[in-house]
Design a protein around this nucleic acid. Structure first.
Lengths: 135, 135
DNA sequence: CTTTGTGCAAAGGCTTTGCATGCTT
DNA sequence: AAGCATGCAAAGCCTTTGCACAAAG
C-alpha cells in the first residue's frame, strides 16, 4: 500500500513557512487562519491563504500548534509547548494560559475505565475573563 | 427595542418538531443535523433540512440537547439531561455516556482563580473506545 | 385571525483541492 | 535535476437566511 514510512516528513524552509512560524511565535492568543493571513499581508510578508491553511494544518498534525474549534465553525490556532496541557482562555481578548491538570488527566482516565472504555483521550478547555478584561 | 421578555418563548407542536424530538429521544449517540434529516426521510416523516437545523439550534439554546463540534466543522447533537454534565464518547460508534465531574468542575474554577480569571466556564469531553467496539 | 413554523432555493463563510509554476534540496 | 511548496481560482461542505405559504393557538 504505502512505502515504509520513516520519521518526519520533510518540511522545507520557505519564506512563507518562516513568516507564519515567526508570527505564531509572537502571538500568545488563539488566532484564525484568516486573521493570520490578514496580519501577514498587512505586515508586508504576504502569503497565499491556501498556504496559511496548509501550513497550519501541517503544524497541527505535527503537534506544533493547538487547534480550538469555535462555535461558528472557524478554527483557532495557537503555538504550544510539546508537553500535554490544557488551556485557560480569556473569552474577551483570547489571551491564553497553558495550565497543567494532573488531577483532570487522572479523572478522565478513571471515568473511562469505570465505563469500560479503553484508550482514553480528552478535550478540555477552561474559559473565563482575564484580569485585564474584567477591569 | 424588544418587548418585555417573558418566560419561555412559545414553542408550537408541529409534526416536524414532534418527529425530531422522538427520533432524538431514541438515539443515544451524537448525530449530525444532516444525518438526522436523512433518517427522518428514510423513516417516512420527511422534514425540511432547514427545519432540522432550526429546531436543533432552538433545542440547543433551550438546553435540551448538547452540541459537540467535530473537527471537520460538522456539529453533532444529542439529547441530554438538564443538569450540568460531561460526556464520555466512543470514538468508534459514537455511543455516549453522561458523566458527572464534581472534581473537574472544582479544578476548572481553581485554575481560573489562580490566574485571576473570573466567571469560569469549561468544555470537557472524554473519548475512548467502548466495550462493544474494542471487542 | 394572528403569529409562529416550514420549505425551497439562494447566499454565506470557512476550508479544501486541482493544476501549473517557482523554489528548496 | 527532482520534488515539495505556493498561488490562484474553483469547488465543497455545513449552515444560515429571505420569502411566501401552511399550520397552530
Amino acid at each position: 500500500m504505502s512505502p515504509p514510512e520513516k520519521g518526519a516528513p520533510t518540511t522545507r524552509t520557505t519564506r512563507q513557512r518562516t513568516a507564519i512560524e515567526a508570527l505564531l511565535a509572537d502571538t500568545s492568543s488563539f488566532t484564525s487562519a484568516q486573521h493570520l493571513h490578514a496580519r501577514l499581508s498587512a505586515q508586508g510578508s504576504s502569503v497565499g491563504l491556501s498556504t496559511v491553511y496548509r501550513t497550519l494544518q501541517a503544524m497541527a498534525d505535527a503537534g506544533e500548534v493547538d487547534v480550538l474549534r469555535q462555535g461558528d465553525g472557524e478554527a483557532l490556532y495557537r503555538r504550544c509547548s510539546p508537553a500535554h496541557h490544557h488551556h485557560l482562555v480569556c473569552r474577551e481578548c483570547g489571551r491564553t494560559v497553558e495550565v497543567e491538570g494532573r488531577d483532570v488527566e487522572a479523572w478522565a482516565v478513571r471515568v473511562a475505565q469505570t465505563h469500560g472504555f479503553t484508550d482514553p483521550t480528552h478535550d478540555i478547555e477552561v474559559f473565563g475573563t482575564c484580569p485585564d478584561c474584567s477591569r
